[in-house]
Computed example of a mutant assay.
Amino acid sequence: MKKLLFILSEYGYWGEELIGPLETVEKAGYTVTFATSHGRRPHALPPSMDDTFIDPPLGRPVVSKEMAQKVKELEASSKLDNPINLSELLPERPYMSSSTYLREFEAYNEGVERVEEELKEYDAILLVGGSGPIVDMVNNQRVHDLILAFYRLGKPVVAECYGVACLAFAREYWTRKSIIWGKRVTGHPLEYDYKDGTGFIGVDFNMGPPPYPLEFILRDAVGPDGQFIGNVGRTISAIVDYPFITGRSTADSYKTGELLVQVLENGLKRYGW
């Protein structure tokens, strides 16, 4: 039985971006373990369980009545209780200003290597999207170390929506080059970004637009030999450039899960480009 690790934000995930791949992989007989930055239970963003919500960039509803009900049922369940605490699982990289930096850096690297051994029981990692990842996943060193571990192990790394930004910033410490350099990825294109209304769970704050245009970050991260594929005007955008599987946004959630199953079961290496 295959085992997957799903990373969720404590500041709000988009309901379908968890439901889609979760339903798909569980149907395939896989088991899923959840993790968050500090072990707090993740919650769905309110618009993602509101079938009357009109997505501003698309100008239409993006949550079906059926999906809204599924997300509400998941929220009412205990399924997401007690996720793995990444701040306890993985060590924190020390500041270079530390008076014992060399010893601390050695201990940090040894700790990451121990965790990498433990991760061999998992077959893939998936980063669930939504606005929450902007806060506690995208620039989270421990999330980067998880991604790098799966990358070094040659296992699939899956990301959706703003979770794809985590891939852009996952870099080996010394080279500083993104692991998606030279790869094909999809993600939130400029045309799909909010102009206002970017919000988070547990924080009474409307950021307005997203703090960064993900398309620009991804275009730079893949470099001249890679490609950002936004597929604007197409209802589905999901890309496989092994070991990476990326989904653009909400509508791509089930397809992203289906591609992960194809990668694990049939050895799929390329799709969508």
Rank of each mutant, 00 (worst) to 15 (best):
Glu110Met: 13
Lys3Ser: 11
Gly247Thr: 05
Phe150Asp: 00
Pro42Leu: 02
Leu167Glu: 09
Ile147Cys: 07
Arg142Val: 11
Lys177Gly: 01
Pro21Gly: 06
Phe105Ala: 13
Phe105Tyr: 15
Asp220Phe: 10
Pro189Asp: 03
Phe200Leu: 05
Arg176Val: 10
Gly132Thr: 03
Ser178Pro: 04
Ser97Gly: 08
Leu167Pro: 04
Val32Trp: 09
Ala168Cys: 12
Ala165Glu: 14
Val185Gly: 00
Val203Cys: 00
Lys269Leu: 14
Asp136Tyr: 01
Gly272Tyr: 15
Arg152Lys: 15
His188Asp: 10
Ser9Thr: 06
Gly197Asp: 10
Gly199Cys: 12
Val115Ala: 10
Ser37His: 09
Phe205Met: 11
Gly208Ala: 04
Ala124Trp: 04
Val115Gln: 07
Tyr212Asp: 03
Glu110Lys: 15
His38Gln: 13
Met49Lys: 15
Ser48Leu: 03
Arg248Asp: 11
Ser249Met: 14
Pro213Ile: 09
Gly59Pro: 02
Met96Val: 14
Glu172Met: 11
Arg171Asp: 00
Gln141Asn: 14
Arg60Phe: 05
Lys79Asn: 04
Ser249Gly: 12
Tyr242Arg: 00
Leu89Tyr: 06
Val112His: 06
Ile19Leu: 09
Pro61Tyr: 02
Ala221Asp: 09
Ser48Met: 05
Trp174Cys: 08
Ala124Asp: 07
Arg114Ser: 12
Asp225Val: 06
Pro56Asp: 04
Tyr242Phe: 15
Trp174Val: 13
Val128Gln: 04
Tyr194Arg: 13
Asp81Pro: 02
Val185Met: 03
Ser253Ile: 06
Ala159Gln: 04
Ser48Gln: 05
Val63Trp: 01
Leu8Val: 06
Asp204Cys: 00
Val115Leu: 10
Ser237Val: 07
Asp220Tyr: 12
Arg60His: 11
Tyr108Glu: 12
Met207Thr: 05
